[in-house]
């Protein structure tokens, strides 16, 4: 009995020792020397791997930052200035303060505004429907409402409003840009978040002639140019029958939304206007 115990202890022990030596030697031979700062930076990053920075994931961004030794042109949309500031502190670099951004849906072609002209059946993805036809509402630039953007969102910051058939972006959007890539029609844009989350934008990307666009959708931008004339800051440009508000120039003065004849210009998170119906009738005095 004793003998058996002894033999097993010795044989197992020697086996274990040999294995440990082999493992140690292999580990030494294939050792990868990595900058320890990469780990530190990667720890600071949110770890969502959303790709909002334009790289493959958080680790890739950390490697890139350490390699370049600068934060020039790099950003972490979900982490924001806070995270970049921390990283800058750790590495002794300087981080540029960036304006916070958010994704914005530039289409208001809900079922009411752009009533369906046909019915669609088949794979419920925008990617396929976009290749197949112009969309149930008939607008070739309008939201298809099958939710590729919502499916692409890793942050639960979007949902589909089934009543209107349009995606809604919640305030917890980190502007990673996944939805922008997922939308086959490029309806979603990353814009400046604005003071107190206030934003003004043209909620339409249709470049068809006014009459044609209006036929499909009540709230299409018809390219009339009224908002361009109204804007005192040259923030609005009109190209291909479509107005566009430059968020860097816009001062959120709220002059343009009331003049839009089709209500295509949206303002978000502003307090309600005092005399909304009158503004249109007598703008000069008000």
């Amino acid at each position: 009995m004793n003998e058996i115990t002894l033999i097993s202890v010795i044989s197992l022990g020697s086996l274990g020792t040999i294995a440990a030596i082999i493992l140690y030697m292999v580990a030494q031979k294939f050792k990868v020397i990595e900058d320890p700062r990469i780990d530190i930076v990667a720890d600071k990053l949110p770890g969502a791997n959303c790709g909002g920075c334009g790289l493959a994931g958080c680790r890739a961004l950390a490697e890139e930052i350490v390699k370049k030794e600068s934060l020039e042109g790099m950003s972490c949309p979900p982490g924001g200035n806070e995270v970049m500031g921390e990283i800058a502190k750790v590495l002794g670099l300087e981080a540029k303060e960036q304006d916070p951004t958010i994704a914005v849906v530039r289409c208001s072609g809900s079922r009411e505004n752009a009533p369906p002209k046909v019915k669609y059946e088949g794979d419920m993805t925008c990617a396929f429907a976009h290749n197949l036809f112009a969309g149930e509402g008939g607008c070739p630039k309008g939201c298809l409402s099958y939710g590729d953007c919502v499916a692409s969102c890793d942050f639960d910051a979007m949902y589909m409003d089934h009543k209107t058939g349009l995606p809604v972006i919640k305030d917890n959007c980190v502007s990673c840009g996944a939805c922008v890539k997922a939308c086959p029609r490029s309806i979603i844009e990353i814009r400046k978040r604005g003071k107190k989350d206030r934003r003004i934008f043209v909620s339409c990307i249709n470049v068809e002639k006014g009459g044609v666009a209006r036929k499909n959708c009540q709230v299409a931008c018809i390219g009339c140019g009224k908002c361009v004339k109204e804007c005192k800051f040259d923030a609005i440009t009109l190209e291909n029958n479509l107005a566009y508000i430059d968020f860097n120039k816009c001062t959120l003065c709220r002059k343009c939304p009331p003049v839009c004849p089709t209500n295509a210009i949206h303002e978000l998170n502003f307090p309600p206007r005092r005399q909304r119906p009158e503004t249109k009738a007598e703008p000069a005095e008000a």
Binding site: T125, A127, F128, N131
Partner: peptide, 13 residues
């Protein structure tokens, strides 16, 4: 299943 619909997207991309 919408096989061809999905394959078409795959073919395009």
């Amino acid at each position: 299943r919408p096989l061809l619909d999905q394959i078409r997207v795959g073919k395009n991309e």
